[in-house]
Design a protein around this nucleic acid. Structure first.
Lengths: 136, 136
DNA sequence: CTAGTTGCAAACTTTTTGCATCGAT
DNA sequence: ATCGATGCAAAAAGTTTGCAACTAG
């Protein structure tokens, strides 16, 4: 409705992956748009309601251990994440068979699924591809 | 090492499922043990390091929207959660086939898995067993 | 003109830190 | 006696709220 919201929406869509309030503010700032932090804080929940973004569960980004992070889900197929514990890289993937099994589990427990969140934590190939011990 | 830590450890183990700093402090308080919040905050990360508890990703409990929550994993088989969006009930489950597929996905992407976290979100049978619409 | 939004600053909540004291080894 | 842990209070960090000015419809 307002120009700030348009800007915010654009900024959100330009975010490659996960972001938080501060990222948005910086991003807008770099384009010469000064939007108050308050405004962003107030609009993020609205974007969530609108189904544009979703609040992710890994809170904390580089240097901000307690910041809430979001990701956009508009025009974004559902996906889950592989997260490298060493370099922090996040790889998105989706795997139909897993989703099918999830449905099965839910049904077994009488649940009707609305959504899910899956996070696989480990080390990526570049970081050694092994837990944390010796790498030849 | 200290009596406070023993108490804390006991309190943690007595926690049925997810808890946060405040829960622990209350729990201890009810037993007549007064432990400073600071001490709990300082020890929780140690317990995590020690592999006794883990930090969960759903932050926010009744009334405390920003509280970090933990769950203990000692003597606790790995499990994932089904969460009811209506009543908030959390059901633990584990399903071998899903874990196997997770390994497969990780391998495909060159990752070596250390752990994972899976959360299925929906409505439980008692709450209607369906998204949120009509229940006959 | 009215309703709702913005921006600033102050309030709040959760967690961390400084510092003196206390306890364990 | 030494080294680290505790507890209190104050500081941080992130987010929310109050309020006056502003803007879209």
């Amino acid at each position: 409705m307002t120009s700030e919201r348009e800007l915010l929406l654009k900024a959100v869509c330009n975010m490659k992956s996960h972001f938080h309030q501060d990222n948005l503010q910086n991003s807008l700032s770099n384009e010469g748009h000064d939007v108050a932090a308050t405004t962003i804080y107030r609009n993020l929940p609205l974007l969530v309601e609108a189904g544009i973004i979703r609040r992710t569960c890994y809170s904390g980004v580089e240097g901000k251990p307690d910041a809430a992070t979001y990701e956009h889900i508009w025009g974004h197929e559902h996906h889950d994440h592989l997260i490298c514990t060493i370099c922090g890289k996040k790889v998105e993937f989706s795997y139909h068979a897993i989703e099918v099994l999830q449905e099965a589990v839910a049904r077994e427990h009488g649940f009707t699924l609305e959504s899910h969140h899956l996070e696989l934590i480990g080390t990526c190939q570049e970081c050694g591809g092994r837990p944390s011990a010796e790498k030849e």
